[in-house]
Design a protein around this nucleic acid. Structure first.
Lengths: 165, 165
DNA sequence: CGTGAAACATTAGCGGC
DNA sequence: GCCGCTAATGTTTCACG
């Protein structure tokens, strides 16, 4: 089911769901002028095919005491792991990626083109917490060479909805 | 309702909902050993207070033909707007922020500390589309001085769920 | 906080285009 | 193939103990 046709009606359903993921099937059916059963069949098909990756609630970071958002650029050592082992090497990239999965304050991490190797989105309570994270986790990690941080001063725009229409 | 107490039970509800925003109230109530009505009352309270900002479906960008993700650092002109007007000025920042809202390919934008003024997350079909966006929109904008782009090579981690437990 | 009943939503089966 | 109807099942919601 990796490949599937997505027609204009599917796109309208997706546009609605990525703005409000809890609308009832009936409500969605009404908005696209379809009866509930074919509408539901389409939604299930989009879910099972993986076009819809899932449904989530979005929370307010401020109100949960996570008021500090940072983007951190990380550069790693090149080549094999920290113990230069024979072959079938664990690379620095492998080690770093595994570590990232265990750090809860890192909510996103991408391998990037350009000067730096990785871009991390880090969501924490305050500067004290962030400082501890950088000192004790990031800079402490054997694969990390260099770290450059920018802090978010203001959120101009932020949406999980993709421009599909 | 800006300030409200969030106890351990609320946090467990939030942790569940930010992983699966379509679970039925009954299912959530079971998982936290509560009966459906107080559970629903808590959820409604969290929604109305704004701790839960909303519910969304997350879509697969690849399967929707939006396979290219870029982070773009933007630097703006300093001071008042492009027509150096008397006072009560429209600043370059104001102009740029308004433009950002109208660009669908920009799914996120933050004002940042550091060398560059803004960080944009841009989601597009391919390099051709991205190139058009930079040339025709970004560089064409009168407030923009400088633009530096990095492209995502690999998604190591990405979650909308905040580390609240 | 929990119970229960009414209102509402989801889902599978079937006939028609 | 895809749509829309109906009927059974399951879920949400609210008044009340």
């Amino acid at each position: 089911m990796a490949n599937m046709e997505i027609d204009a009606i599917d796109r309208r359903i997706l546009a609605i769901l990525q703005e409000n993921g809890r609308l009832s099937n009936q409500e969605i059916a009404e908005r696209i002028n379809l009866s509930p059963s074919p509408c539901l069949r389409r939604i299930r098909r989009l879910e099972e095919s993986g076009v819809i990756r899932g449904y989530v609630a979005l929370l307010d970071a401020q109100r949960l005491g996570l008021g500090l958002l940072a983007y951190v650029n990380v550069r790693l050592e090149k080549g094999g792991g920290p113990t230069p082992s024979p072959r079938g090497d664990v690379t620095h990239a492998d080690l770093f990626r595994a570590a990232v999965q265990t750090w809860p304050e890192v909510v996103a991490c991408y391998a990037m083109t350009g000067e730096m190797d990785y871009l991390l989105r880090v969501q924490v309570e305050d500067m004290a917490h962030f400082s501890r994270f950088v000192q004790d986790q990031l800079l402490h990690h054997p694969s990390v060479i260099d770290v450059r941080t920018s802090f978010s001063l203001d959120k101009i725009k932020e949406t999980t909805a993709l421009p599909i229409l």
